[in-house]
Simulated assay, not measured.
Amino acid sequence: MAIRLGGDGDDMEEMSEINITPFIDVILVLLIIFMIAAPLATVTVPVDLPVSTATAQPDPQEPIILSLQNDLTLSIGDRAIDRSMLAAELGRASKGDTQARILLRADKGVDYGDIMGLMDDLRKANYLKVGLVTEDGTGPAPQ
C-alpha cells in the first residue's frame, strides 16, 4: 500500500492506484528466460543407433483399383462389373473388409457429377478409404 505525503505531513492519505510497471518488468524478464531456455530443453543427446538388416515389410494389403471409363462402365482391376453389383463385387475383391483402400481411376472426360455419384455409392457400401488416381504431371503441358 502506498502513502502520499502531503505538504504539512499530518494528513497522510492512502493512494489506491496500482503501479503496474514492476509487474511488466518481471513478466518481460520471465519471457526472456523462457525464450532462452526453451531451445535448450530439446533432446540433443547424441545416440549411435544400431542398423537393422531386416527388409522393409510391404503394405499388408494391395489397394483395389476401381476404374470408371468415359462411357461410365466400371471395372475392378481388369474385370468389368455392373454398377448395380458394385457393393457385392467390392466385397468379393476386398474379402469383406470395408476398411480396404480403393483407388478410383476416372477418365478425364467423365462428368464430375458421375464421379461423385460413384463415390456416394462407395460410401453407401461403407468403403470410406477412397483415393483418386491421376497421372504424373511431369509430361508435356496440356494444350
Rank of each mutant, 00 (worst) to 15 (best):
M1A: 04
M1D: 07
R4G: 14
R4S: 10
G6N: 11
G6F: 03
G7I: 02
G9A: 05
D10V: 15
D10A: 11
M12Y: 08
M12F: 07
M12E: 11
E13Q: 14
S16K: 15
S16I: 10
E17M: 15
I18V: 13
I20W: 12
T21P: 01
T21N: 08
P22N: 08
I24T: 11
V26A: 04
V26F: 04
V26S: 09
V26C: 07
V26M: 12
I27T: 03
I27S: 14
L28R: 01
L28S: 13
V29K: 12
L31Q: 12
I32E: 01
I33D: 09
F34E: 01
P39K: 04
A41Q: 08
P46G: 04
P46W: 00
V47K: 08
V47E: 02
V47G: 03
D48L: 11
P50T: 15
S52I: 00
S52Q: 00
S52D: 00
S52P: 00
A54F: 15
T55N: 14
T55I: 10
A56C: 05
D59I: 06
E62P: 07
I64R: 10
I65D: 12
I65F: 13
I65L: 15
L68K: 03
N70P: 02
D71S: 00
L72D: 09
T73E: 14
G77V: 00
D78N: 06
D78C: 06
R79C: 06
A80Q: 05
I81E: 09
D82T: 14
D82M: 11
R83T: 11
S84E: 07
L86W: 12
A87P: 02
A87E: 08
A87S: 12
A88Q: 04
A88E: 00
E89A: 15
L90N: 11
G91E: 07
G91M: 06
G91D: 07
G91C: 04
R92G: 09
A93P: 08
S94M: 11
G96Y: 03
G96K: 13
D97Y: 00
D97K: 02
A100S: 05
I102L: 07
L104N: 13
D107Q: 01
K108W: 08
K108F: 08
G109R: 14
D111P: 01
Y112T: 13
Y112Q: 14
G113W: 08
G113L: 15
G113K: 09
I115N: 00
M116A: 05
G117Y: 01
L118I: 08
L118R: 07
M119N: 09
D120V: 06
D121Y: 04
D121H: 11
D121L: 13
L122S: 00
K124G: 10
K124N: 07
A125I: 02
A125N: 04
A125R: 01
N126W: 02
L128S: 06
K129Q: 02
K129R: 04
V130C: 07
T134K: 01
E135A: 12
D136V: 05
D136S: 13
G137F: 09
G137E: 10
T138Y: 15
T138S: 15
T138G: 05
G139M: 11
P140N: 15
A141R: 05
Q143Y: 03
